[in-house]
Design a protein around this nucleic acid. Structure first.
Length: 291
DNA sequence: AAGTATGTCAACCGCCGCGTA
DNA sequence: ATACGCGGCGGTTGACATACT
């Protein structure tokens, strides 16, 4: 049996909402909430489908919506988040209070995309959403669906990614644009070359238990001390920017969850896994330093 | 002033994953 | 096990506004 249409087309209004309809929807949701969007329009006396009501509320009528133009700071944040998350507008919106995914998507397509170089636009998430998930690699074959869902929402904190993500540089969501640290890999795939506050330094990740299964990617605090404090003044305020364009790790890694990452994959997907973990640990470590 | 091109953004469409019966 | 309902998501559309010729 085929799927039922999301709403009856006959007799239901479409197009722009009138102020009267808005008021009805606001009044209803303020009184009864929106437990069931499908039933809501009938109960509220609106000639709209549930989806339309939901969209109108989420994107326009919600009391916590921030209206008006995006600030430069917000725009920079969106660009930064887009580098990291791709076209996951809802995930980006979740990090920008008061802004909706639709609004962010619009501002991206109308303003922000133009500010970026051509090669960024070509390499970042221009593909349509695929109908099927890309085949899982051996490395994350054991990942549960729940993890996959979480990963989609917040890939920074969960290892794993798809091949699209691999192509983008990773930078933290709350980095300022003048961040002075960067983190890249060197040719031998085991050295991490850190450029922090204009000081170059290299770390051999093998010195820090990164590929020892029993240590579960236990990068110790010495590693992060070096990553984050290469300005010789103790601690830097910025996160490293992770650039793994050329990153193809060769050593096997085991994540904190005990999932084996096959670093020899030529797809580089697991390089992203690696950096997700690296970044996650950097974040944890910096939070510790801030305490 | 009129016609056309381009930009903006609210709204819609169709797909997907999850929960449930 | 599976079919279905639902909410949620990203891509796309189209009406309207504005800029340009």
């Amino acid at each position: 049996m085929g799927r039922a249409p999301c709403c009856e087309k006959m007799g239901l209004k479409r197009g722009p909402w009138t102020p009267e309809e808005d008021q009805i929807l606001i009044n209803y949701i303020n009184t009864y909430g929106h437990a069931n969007w499908r039933a809501l329009p009938k109960l509220a006396g609106l000639l709209r489908c549930g989806k339309s009501c939901r969209l109108r509320w989420i994107n326009y009528l919600r009391p916590d919506i921030k209206r008006g133009n995006f600030t430069r700071e917000e725009e920079d944040t969106i660009i930064s988040l887009h580098e990291m998350l791709g076209n996951r507008w809802s995930a980006i919106a979740a990090r920008l209070s008061g802004r909706t995914d639709n609004e962010i998507k619009n501002v991206w397509h109308t303003h922000l995309k133009k500010r970026l170089p051509q090669n960024y636009q070509q390499s970042h998430h221009t593909k349509k959403r695929s109908k099927k998930q890309p085949p899982k690699l051996d490395a994350d074959a054991s990942k549960s669906n729940q993890d996959a869902k979480l990963e989609q929402q917040d890939p920074v904190n969960i290892h794993g990614s798809n091949s699209e993500d691999m192509m983008m540089p990773l930078s933290p969501p709350h980095c300022s644009s003048d961040m002075s640290s960067s983190l890249t890999t060197s040719d031998n795939n085991s050295n991490v070359n850190i450029i922090n506050n204009n000081h170059d330094m290299s770390l051999n990740v093998n010195d820090y238990d990164i590929d020892t299964p029993e240590n579960n990617l236990a990068l110790d605090e010495d590693f992060w001390s070096e990553v984050l404090s290469s300005d010789n003044s103790g601690v830097t305020s910025g996160f490293p920017t992770l650039d793994y364009d050329q990153f193809q790790p060769m050593s096997p890694l085991v994540t904190e969850e005990g999932v084996l990452i096959d670093c020899s994959s030529s797809t580089c997907d697991d390089g992203m896994d690696f950096w997700c973990n690296v970044y996650s640990r950097a974040e944890e470590f910096t939070q510790l330093l801030e305490l």
